[in-house]
């Protein structure tokens, strides 16, 4: 699944010259372009200076167009960098930080700010953007509810992931979430906070299916929230964006979230994702 997502982000010029062999259905075989990309990274890592497209192509026995397509794609995801004056390539800084967050949170705020404003304006509710930091949700951006009442700036605060819509979106798409759930003591903030790890696991599976999460009086009485994932290259979830406000404005009398608001949130999430280079969302 992951592999096909990555392929869908490749430039079309590259896709058209790329040949995908037919493999056995049950066990997918190696993907040629990824093997070639790995070879290019090894080649660049071994080289003392930067390499041009021609050098990479001849060294690996690839067609120039193929090498160029892979290099351009690797550049797009930050794994290689092109030197502007010479046009030659070297390993990208992102490779050094593979384990840590690949998108700077201030960059995320800057790229999302217009869409977050538009979401607040359309929904009439406060907007927050969060990322995971040491098992908590870090609020990296906050737009006030557009009613011109006095509200306190919330950027930099930490929220419990299991009790918030933002947090559920982030946990649902985080590979470490399972281990987090096993070890964590899930604190109750209200009668409705999910404190049972298995129940939370089911809630997160639902978030993955639906593509959005809710929080209905799970963090504070009278408050509800709706959030959706922000994705970067290849579909990687880099943050969550959502609205929050009085439960009677966000949900109907039966506690079902307003689907129009859900639509606004998902559209905003998609718009930010598009800006960040996620092609399918």
């Amino acid at each position: 699944m992951r592999i096909y997502r990555l392929l869908s982000t490749l430039p079309t010029t590259f896709q058209s010259i790329h040949f995908l062999p037919r493999y056995d259905q049950a066990v997918p075989g190696p993907v040629q372009s990824i093997e070639r990309a790995a070879a290019i990274l090894r080649l660049l890592a071994r080289s003392s200076g930067r390499l041009g497209v021609g050098e990479v192509a001849s060294s690996l026995g690839l067609a120039r167009g193929t090498a160029h397509g892979i290099l351009r794609t690797l550049e797009r995801v930050g794994f290689v960098e092109q030197d502007e004056p010479t046009g030659k390539y070297q390993l990208g800084a992102a490779l050094l930080h593979l384990g840590t967050s690949y998108l700077d949170v201030n960059e995320l705020r800057s790229r999302a700010i217009n869409w977050a404003d538009a979401l607040a304006a359309r929904s009439g509710e406060a907007v927050r953007i969060g990322t995971l930091l040491d098992g908590k949700v870090l609020v990296v951006h906050h737009v006030f509810r557009p009613d011109d009442t006095l509200q306190a700036m919330d950027i930099g605060s930490l929220l419990p992931p299991h009790a918030t819509a933002l947090g559920k979106v982030l946990l649902a798409h985080d590979a470490n979430a399972a281990s987090y759930l096993q070890g964590a003591e899930l604190e109750a903030f209200s009668r409705r906070t999910i404190t049972n790890p298995r129940e939370l696991g089911r809630a997160l599976a639902r978030v993955r299916d639906l593509g959005w999460a809710t929080e209905i009086e799970e963090m504070s009485i009278g408050e509800a929230a709706i959030a959706a994932p922000i994705r970067g290259y290849g579909g990687l979830v880099v943050g969550a964006i959502g609205v929050s406000g009085a439960v009677e404005r966000l949900c109907d009398t039966k506690g079902t979230p307003d689907l129009e608001l859900v639509g606004y949130v998902r559209n905003a999430a998609r718009a930010v994702s598009r800006d960040l280079g996620a092609s399918r969302w």
């Binding site: 304006a121 737009v143 006030f144 557009p146 011109d148 006095l150 509200q151 700036m153």
Partner: peptide, 8 residues
Amino acid sequence: WHRAARWV
């Protein structure tokens, strides 16, 4: 016009 953020 609406206020989106305020720093004190």
